[in-house]
Amino acid sequence: MHSLSALRPAHLDLLKELGNIGAGHAATALSQLLNKRLKLKIPAVSVATLAELNEDDAEKHVAAAYIRVDGELEGHFFMVFEAAHAEQLIQDLVPGGSTFDSEIGVSAFCEISNILCGSYLSALASFLRVPLNQSPPVFAMDMQGAIFGEVLAELSIDDNSVILINTSLYDCEKQNEWKGKLIFLPVPGSMDVIFNMIEGKTSM
């Protein structure tokens, strides 16, 4: 895989399926952690040029945890909640109304991202039959575009476009509804492991 422009619909379908498997496991993990029912939206896979990316959501105030993924498949994992929704999530998890003003709020948020990324990746790893590793999460709360900037800069070294596998999670209970996003940006150069599967090749 040398260029993202070579991707065919079959490739995108497979990426969508990976997003579905990963986010499905992550939603189950979060559901158990919070003891509430969560809804999962069908993942969206998009290939976008750099210029197309910095649009509507660039200024949105979000809380995000970032985790680097390496192994046979490399990529970047983000858990993103709108700032107000993130507060709600933390209050659901940490009784006593902890918020992001406290260390405990940030640690709780990072720990959730760690668990979600872990279940997302272990689903991918068993599906692809390759080992995957994750870095400890780092946290930021600011404009979404600014938070994604560094990772996009790094990905832009290899390509003028990026792939986003984006899944939304919803709280089903009406009273304190929140929405979060799990976004995985695979490194194009490491995606052979995925595409060998549909070519019928296997490295094992």
């Binding site: 750099l50 210029a51 197309e52 990316l53 910095n54 649009e55 660039a58 200024e59 600011d142 404009m143 979404q144 575009g145 600014a146 938070i147 994604f148 900037g149 560094e150 996009l152 800069a153 832009s156 003028n160």
Partner: peptide, 25 residues
């Protein structure tokens, strides 16, 4: 006029050049 990632744009009065969500860029 919106300037996206990695773009260069030019403008004259009375136009405004804008870019959103700058982080390390």
């Amino acid at each position: 006029i919106h300037v996206g990632l990695a773009e260069i744009k030019f403008a004259e009065e009375p136009e405004i050049l804008r870019t959103m969500g700058l982080g390390s860029c």
